[in-house]
Write a protein that binds this DNA or RNA. Structure first.
Ligand SMILES: [Mn+2]
Ligand SMILES: [Mn+2]
Ligand SMILES: [Zn+2]
Ligand SMILES: [Zn+2]
Lengths: 124, 124
DNA sequence: CATTTAATGCGACTTTGTTGCAATAATAAA
DNA sequence: TTTATTATTGCAACAAAGTCGCATTAAATG
């Protein structure tokens, strides 16, 4: 179960690394020069998530967005921050602010999924 | 465009009102005695949302959950709170804590979708 | 080069949610 | 009560997002 480097994984990796915003599957597919299968892209992205290279956010549109996180690179894999999805241009960004979570007693935390939708500054 | 009361809308309304947790479409369908079409249920729920009777949260599982909110009943329609989805029993709850949101300059707020997944107290 | 097995492509499939349209029925008007 | 209006429903078809099995391809290792 050792990971192998392929043209597809390299490409997807660099697309995500370059991107300032989180990308959905279809955004990535558009940016790919060669035609890579949908299933492959999803598998690559999910592997990246397992390996904590990227993190995943589910938008209020129901889609999954993947991103290299602003904070994750340094510290361990945490993404306790809000995301912003522009309903005009579709861009999804990681916001800086860190969220503090307090759960009721006997609740076990697993994952935070926080996203604000609205209009971004470029679209105002 | 005035709303009409039907057996289905009444039933769905009372199911949601009784429920202490947010319900997805299929959770509601299970609770219905009579067989109501999927499309109808969705249309009723979306109408309730328009009328600000219930609010909708998109889970990190990609599904939509609908709930009478703890706070919404009194004040105007706001649901700036976290939700908790138990990955064991599937229950989705509105949490009490109110979230304060600060966006970067020139960003326009439209909607907050915040959900924490984990294990609830009944499932620990 | 030969071997091992992770990664891919393809197709089929599931799940979630929406939409067009004709039929039904709740409400208002007569 | 009867009639007219039109919101609501059921059905079927559809779309979008994501997953999975399986045969094939091709990295990695020696
Ligand atoms: Mn992020
Ligand atoms: Mn809520
Ligand atoms: Zn924008
Ligand atoms: Zn639970």
């Amino acid at each position: 179960m050792k990971r192998r480097k392929t043209e597809s994984t390299n490409k997807i990796y660099s697309i995500l690394k370059k991107s300032k915003s989180a990308l959905s599957h279809d955004m990535i597919q558009e940016k790919m020069s060669s035609d890579v299968d949908r299933a492959t892209i999803y598998r690559v992205l999910n592997r990246f998530c397992e390996d904590k290279i990227v993190h995943k956010v589910t938008g209020d549109d129901g889609k999954q967005y993947f991103a290299f996180c602003i904070n994750c690179q340094e510290k361990k894999h945490k993404h306790n921050h809000f995301h912003f999805r522009c309903t005009s241009c579709g861009k999804v960004e990681c916001l800086e602010s860190e969220i503090k979570i307090t759960l009721p007693n006997d609740y076990v935390f697993q994952n935070l999924n926080a996203i604000i939708s609205g209009i971004c500054s470029s679209c105002t």
